[in-house]
Design a protein around this nucleic acid. Structure first.
Lengths: 336, 336
DNA sequence: CTGAAAGCGCTAACAT
DNA sequence: ATGTTAGCGCTTTCAG
């Protein structure tokens, strides 16, 4: 029932508990034979160190936080999934991974250096700026993923959303589309802004003015894509292509089009962003932009662990490349 | 920078640290005025208790584990998402939620009563029986969700998969289908077996023999649904309806059918299981069985917390009802 | 109502 | 190479 302590082992081995502690921590000062003996006793007694005690004296909690802006809305299941998977793969059982939406906390009181050795913030919105400042003020080692932050000295891993959106829009333009709408992401989310910017830039490069009526606000969710498409289809002059800032919204948009008797991509083209596992399996398969969440999360975990061990990390800002994934939901209007 | 301890507060308040401890823990033995004074000092100093110290003396870690059989395959993003969301909603900041796939552990060494006050196991497969026994042997309070376990005395919350599958199959039969295939879930997963059983039972009730060629093994993933459908469509006599044991597989199945020029549901009907957020937005909208993961997770968190506080929990086994969700992917062949 | 003292299990000087 | 001692920050007898 494992209430064995180093003192018990010490007694059995006929040494002091200090020696046991050292042996178990592989101190080089201990006689190899003694060490072997102690370890074997520990093994046979099924000894497990009491991490609360270790934590107290070593001033480490062995907890790592993986925090999201919110778990309620705007965070897609696929996003959460890939992030957790990526991080867990790296930290193995060296740390406990604590997953939380920032908005689950009434106060940040429980978030402190004693309780978290480090924090990875999957930042989605500027709304978590206060949290970032809190962490910074309280000297908690942290890194920010997914959203670019201005703060200096912060390790910041971000996907290159803007150029992804640029390439997608450019692709649509190359396919001959000229009237291209965008369904934007959640208001206040940096990623939403970056994707819009890439879209704008591409249009500009082709000398096409940005039209307000073709920019519809969404919130990254399925439903909002649906509603946006309904509005777009009601326009006097319909777009020939719709760039949705998330795959989920693209799904919703396709749904709206199909319900109104239109065919995708024959009557209207639709593209997404994210490349969730589903996008290859929708009908039609979704042309989208792949966002390397899992890779970014793995890298984040590595960087955070390095930061905890060496107390510093070289590169501050790292861009993760997005990739255009061409499937079947955007029609080629020309032969180029 | 919050390295304030109760001793600092004691000094400032002119009392002993014992009194501070008691005051902060709302002990009734402390003079209300003293208490107020101490609390206000603590507040102004921005005191945060050191949870490692509390943990050591109180023998509680304030950690709750949410464990999955695996995070690599067979666990859908939606499943993970709803489970985490449900649990976090209940535990708020009273506990840390640690999310892990059991197969992330090389050994269970780090899983013990000192490190986890309690564990919720989202059990998907009999493969985690050893883990359950481990937890039980080591006296870690735990409850098992999602999969029925034989072990007595274990709090066990499970969705009623079998009757969900039964109702779905029955619905297909009522629609006039007689040649109904099933794409089964991951081998070894209890849920896969239960869904198959519900299917079998319904066929039996209608006097239809189970045909091996209509039972295809899948693994709950998109791809496996696709492959299964390919095989079914190659049959000399095709099924008129295909019951997939997960929405993901249903998506794959629809994909395969459409690629082969068939229309769903006009040429072949497809149904799913789970009712993930996506199922209403696929084309056609998926007829499926809703599985109340979030509710079950919330209930699980409540039960676990009750178990930790009162050291016992009344009901051992609770069934969560699944629900038939009729949408557009199953065709009515008759007029009944 | 408050304080002194002990101790949770561990690590880390400081001896030797 | 090993032991002695102190102490991490907190709660909890036990005394008063």
């Amino acid at each position: 029932m494992s209430n064995v302590t180093i003192k018990d082992i010490a007694r059995m081995a006929g040494v002091s508990h200090t020696t046991v502690s050292r042996a178990l921590n592989d101190s080089p000062l201990i006689n190899p034979e003694t060490k072997e003996k102690i370890k074997s006793i520990a093994g046979s007694l099924n000894y497990t160190p009491n991490y609360s005690a270790k934590s107290l004296v070593l001033d480490r909690s062995y907890n790592l936080g993986l925090f999201f802006t919110t778990l309620r809305q705007g965070t897609s299941p696929g996003f959460l999934y890939e992030a957790i998977k990526g991080v867990n793969e790296i930290i193995k059982d060296r740390y406990n991974l604590i997953v939380r939406g920032i908005d689950d906390y009434k106060s940040y009181h429980h978030v402190n250096r004693k309780s978290f050795d480090g924090i990875m913030l999957m930042s989605q919105s500027a709304a978590d700026q206060p949290f970032i400042e809190y962490a910074s003020d309280h000297g908690i080692p942290f890194i920010v993923l997914n959203r670019e932050v201005e703060m200096s000295g912060v390790v910041n891993l971000i996907p290159d959303d803007q150029s992804g959106a640029y390439r997608m829009t450019e692709y649509m333009l190359r396919c001959g589309h000229r009237r291209i709408a965008i369904v934007e992401g959640k208001a206040g989310f940096k990623s939403a802004q970056a994707r819009k910017e890439g879209y704008r830039e591409a249009l500009l490069a082709y000398g096409i003015p940005l039209q307000d009526e073709l920019c519809i606000r969404g919130d990254y969710g399925l439903e909002s894509g649906y509603k946006a498409m309904v509005r777009l289809l009601a326009l006097p002059e319909r777009p020939t292509a719709v760039f949705c800032s998330s795959d989920d919204m693209a799904l919703g948009a396709v749904k709206a089009a199909v319900e109104r008797g239109l065919r995708v991509p024959d009557d209207v083209s639709v593209a997404g962003f994210d490349d969730t596992g589903y996008s290859a399996f929708t009908t039609p398969a979704l042309t989208t932009v792949r966002r390397p969440i899992e890779e970014m999360s793995r890298a984040g975990a590595e960087r955070l662990m390095a930061l905890l061990e060496t107390k510093e990390s070289a590169e501050r800002k790292t861009l993760f490349h997005t990739e255009l994934i061409v499937r079947d939901s955007v029609k080629r209007l020309n032969t180029e």
